[in-house]
Design a protein around this nucleic acid. Structure first.
Lengths: 229, 229
DNA sequence: GCGAGACCTGAGCCTTTGCTCACATTATTG
DNA sequence: CAATAATGTGAGCAAAGGCTCAGGTCTCGC
């Protein structure tokens, strides 16, 4: 059986509008919240260690120490389960970013332009060092989930708005004309390099070199002049 | 059933070393070559239009107009089938790159440094415009295939060697010290931006803008001074 | 303490699909 | 024109795993 498309297509209610509610039912008691939590943790663990294929709902329920029925009480399908995990992962990531921006803004002595870039890049690299295996699996599989593209779009666009806002305050230092395009390029480039780093994990670049080079890349693109390497 | 890991794990020959030969048997007659060709085309078509999940071996055989048995005569598993397609796709891509480099080298009046970068970037963008749907699916799924990482590694490293060789002839123009790191950054950044462009296809950037901005990115990183936008 | 509803259980139904095998057809060789 | 090898066929096996349902247990307000 195809792990994905098959799901939720059984005989019952053939005309019912495919309920893709996430979660199907909200946990109201503490007990239930613990169940949901255990399920999500188990999902993350299996995804991380065994990958998408071994991550079937029976295995998740087993590892979570709950019955398969409980799982389906809160998640209408395997897709919804993983989508929920992805959503959570994305929110955690955004939180780190937002905090990083806030930290930079809160400084009494503001950082220089270059130092700020360095600061943000470091935050991004740190972000991608958290649980890279899970990140890897999610990044690979979420796009194909129903609603997955939407999660990605929302998350990127939130991140982009942060960058865009900051660039806007720094116009004077930049050669850039179209800030939207510049934002897109920067967010994409930095995200994408991390992406490949995580997906193919070549162990090729140390964290320091990666941060330095990404900073060069960003500053170079923005047209900020600086001393040679 | 999980579409992937399950395969080729059936009762027969439990101790036999998992034959992952690709192809299992070489087509010697023209007829057989046509069969293999039809199978690969069908695979590409279904992957492109229906995605990984709908791309099961029965459907491929049906669309190819051959029996399922014939498919398994040449491809020992679904994974091997898609791996073969990926290999072919990668080779075609490399060919375009190599030709692009050859074309630049063969010019009587050599291009300027900037123009050369522009030329290569254009080639890369063109490359990713061919059959983006298929590219998208392959890029998403190949890493998880047995041997998929290897295909990716081989392909990238071939491409990287081309870039690295060219950079080496241009040392004088660059701020760069470590050419290996620079090569990695450039190949990764350009590839990755295209990657995201294809995967999320935001229709956000026109081809022209994309090429221009990528060129800026590369030149900026390399530390080549240029007139403002 | 009791009723209602929230929560949990897990055997097993049912579909999908990778893949085999016994046999048929077509090409090649001598 | 055999004989042999290469190629092609497709019904169907068997396993995997998503998901349901009929029934239990727990919690909480009154």
């Amino acid at each position: 059986m195809s792990s994905r498309t098959t799901a939720r297509r059984h005989r019952r209610a053939p005309s019912a509008p495919k309920t893709l509610d996430v979660p199907r039912k909200l946990p109201r008691q503490e007990r239930a919240q613990a169940t949901v939590e255990a399920i999500l943790r188990a999902t993350a663990h299996i995804l991380r260690t065994k990958g998408w294929d071994e991550c079937n709902t029976n295995a998740v329920a087993k590892r979570a120490g709950v019955s398969i029925g409980s799982l389906y009480q809160y998640f209408p399908s395997k897709e919804a389960l993983i989508a929920a995990l992805a959503e959570r992962h994305a929110q955690e990531g955004l939180k780190i970013l937002v905090e990083s921006v806030a930290a930079a803004r809160a400084r009494e002595v503001p950082l220089s332009f270059e130092a700020t870039v360095f600061h943000y890049i470091s935050a991004m690299v740190t972000l991608h060092s958290h649980d890279p295996e899970l990140h890897r699996v999610l990044v690979e599989q979420v796009p194909r989930l129903p609603g997955g593209q939407e999660v990605i779009r929302r998350t990127s666009s939130h991140a982009a708005s942060l960058v865009r806002a900051w660039l806007d305050t720094q116009r004077e230092h930049l050669r850039i004309v179209d800030l939207d395009v510049a934002t897109y390029m920067l967010v994409t480039a930095v995200e994408a390099i991390q992406h490949l780093q995580v997906v193919h994990r070549p162990e090729q670049l140390s964290r320091e070199v990666l941060v330095t080079e990404l900073t060069h890349l960003v500053l170079g693109y923005l047209g900020v002049t600086r001393a040679g390497r």
